[in-house]
Design a protein around this nucleic acid. Structure first.
Lengths: 186, 186
DNA sequence: GGTTATTGTTTGACATGCCAAACAAACGCA
DNA sequence: TGCGTTTGTTTGGCATGTCAAACAATAACC
């Protein structure tokens, strides 16, 4: 139906999230204060773009400025970015420690989805990881076993995950298109 | 650095992915052919918007039209959408069957990230699920154990997942902001 | 003090993606 | 045949998010 249209009805756009992140990081050593120029440098965009974006973020009450053009997060902005940071950490850790992706790949993927995932998904993800390292989880053997796992359902319909249409085969198939057309991603 | 800017350098935007999906689904019963009106209805947008979007998708060689304005996916478009569909299924299944989210929540989350995740992440996710249902995974006990798991690290720095700054507590904390400010999501 | 950066803002431009409204062509039915 | 409906397109408008370029104000140096 219309589920897909809710894509951009999030509290934070990808851009806004990273503006707030930049202020958060840059301000860390300066009592929370950051400058437009540094934000721009950090994000790899122009000062003008930052200036415009900040106007919106100020209007939404997420950042404030003082008389010297210094920028900082509001209490609300602070809370929001801490939330996104928690989601980012949850996803990054999962991708690295559970799925075994490289640091670079984990960073790239988590960056794209960190601001989009629901509190429910993030919470369950964290809880799942806590379980995996807990005593209850078959003494932490799960991940070690997974590292050695080389299973392939070969398209068998008995596979509870793929049900005949092997997802791994499907993902591998279209990888070729990617190479041919030099798309950055599918 | 600039990792975050690659957000929109994907082969497919959220919008484009769902246009292709709509054509794919509508065409299923008609030899792959779909009409602009039906695509618009399916997506909940106007015919004009679809008309404009299709112009771009045609130029990129992802869809073709015949002399009666009928629309269908090109071979390339077909492959791309099958790939996204595989990613969607991987994520949806993981969110429902592993994390235990509701169908609605799983659909909402997977819809937002399906076109953004890397082939690597999708592949590992599928492989992980295959492992979880395999004989090697402690006889499939993992998920059953997880359902009963109620662990909480209480902010202990010994927690391998949270390391003192409990992610669950962090996520729960900002949930309140969400309620107060009636944001649709954080 | 004067010249030369550096900084933040404004402006016009472009791209994406949506809408509403106007329109012509084709269709349907009587 | 003719009238109303459906369909696809075009146009102008809005919002977001980027750039480059021009500008004023401040800072830094000699």
């Amino acid at each position: 139906m219309d589920t897909w249209k809710k894509f951009d009805t999030n509290a934070l756009t990808h851009s806004a999230a990273h503006h707030l992140f930049a202020i958060h990081e840059l301000g860390a050593g300066y009592g929370g204060w950051a400058r437009v120029s540094d934000i721009a440098r950090q994000l790899g965009i122009t000062r003008g773009s930052v200036s415009v974006s900040l106007r919106v973020l100020k209007a939404r009450g997420l950042v404030t400025t003082d008389e010297h053009h210094m920028v900082r997060l509001s209490a609300q902005g602070q809370k929001i970015i801490e939330n996104v940071a928690a989601k980012r950490e949850a996803v990054r850790t999962f991708l690295r420690e559970v799925l075994g992706l490289s640091v670079e790949q984990a960073d790239a993927d988590s960056c794209k989805i960190e601001h989009l995932i629901s509190p429910q998904m993030a919470g369950r993800l964290v809880q799942f990881m806590k379980f995996l390292v807990s005593k209850e989880s078959v003494k932490g053997d799960v991940l070690r076993q997974f590292r050695k796992f080389e299973g392939d359902c070969h398209g068998r319909s008995s596979c509870a995950v793929c049900q005949g249409n092997c997802l791994l085969a499907q993902l591998a198939k279209t990888e070729k298109v990617q190479e041919k057309k030099t798309l950055t991603d599918i």
